[in-house]
Design a protein around this nucleic acid. Structure first.
Lengths: 137, 137
DNA sequence: TCGGGGTGGTTGGGTTGTGCAACCATGGGA
DNA sequence: TCCCATGGTTGCACAACCCAACCACCCCGA
């Protein structure tokens, strides 16, 4: 396989993956869309972040994030705390319920993934993940 | 990095990638969305296929494909030919114009990708593509 | 000190991609 | 000949987006 073909494949397969991921996420966890799940995960990992941070990291319009965040708050999964340093800012944090649901969904997603990746050598998994991170950096 | 973390990363980074791809595709080629481009590419590669084939391969609902195909036909990029073996079937083929646009967009996408992947050893590219194909298989 | 450009966030409006369900037409056996 | 399966279209609803306009607040320089 030449580099040009590899590039072609990467592009196409990523697209296929994304579509399937979204579809199956919707089926498995009606309570938490793939987008919500991703944002929720980011909020947890970051230990409190702003809507703008989410928008920048996921290349989303701030209006999109604003609405997603509103939905998550309405669902009681995150809460907004004022930033004492800057009155414009709302720092997002998971609620107890948000953490709980995130954990449940993560478990179940992980199980599905693991099944899918059964038989992959650990080394390949590691390298696959590393490629993706490097690409998106 | 342990396997569980790798799995987590793969999932997340794929999502990020997909979103960026869609956004940038829309910006670079307003005349051909990412979905259209993908389907068009598949039709060319297969050398004539049915809408149902597309739906199966991309895990899309047949109604979605039907509408996408209708759009591509309206745009003059593909044409439907009756299948002599089965009157229900419409075999999809690229038109001259479809082939032309597909080529142009492919060139430009490839250039963008290549720039992005500058500095990647060919071996890594090859392996990255292989992982993706294996995963989606 | 005050005015203005920059930044965080919300809202209104519109587009696109998608799935589900109901439907039609054709095909292929029992 | 009937009946079910299959390929495809259409109506309907919805989620995720983006852009533009807007408000509130921050901060820097004249």
């Amino acid at each position: 396989m030449h580099s040009a073909d590899a590039v072609e494949s990467i592009q196409r397969e990523m697209t296929v993956f994304a579509r399937r991921a979204r579809a199956s996420a919707g089926r498995l966890h009606p309570e938490l869309s793939l987008v919500s799940y991703t944002l929720l995960g980011h909020v947890e990992e970051s230990g409190g972040c702003r809507a703008t941070d989410l928008a920048a990291h996921y290349a989303l319009d701030k209006s999109t994030v604003s609405r997603q965040v509103a939905g998550l708050e309405r669902a009681g999964l995150i809460e907004r705390r004022p930033d004492p340093k800057d009155q414009r800012v709302q720092v997002l944090h998971l609620t107890r319920s948000g953490r709980h649901i995130l954990d449940r969904v993560t478990q179940s997603r992980r199980a599905a993934f693991r099944e899918r990746l059964t038989g992959w050598p650990a080394e390949d998994l590691r390298r696959f993940a590393e490629y993706l991170v490097r690409y998106n950096a």
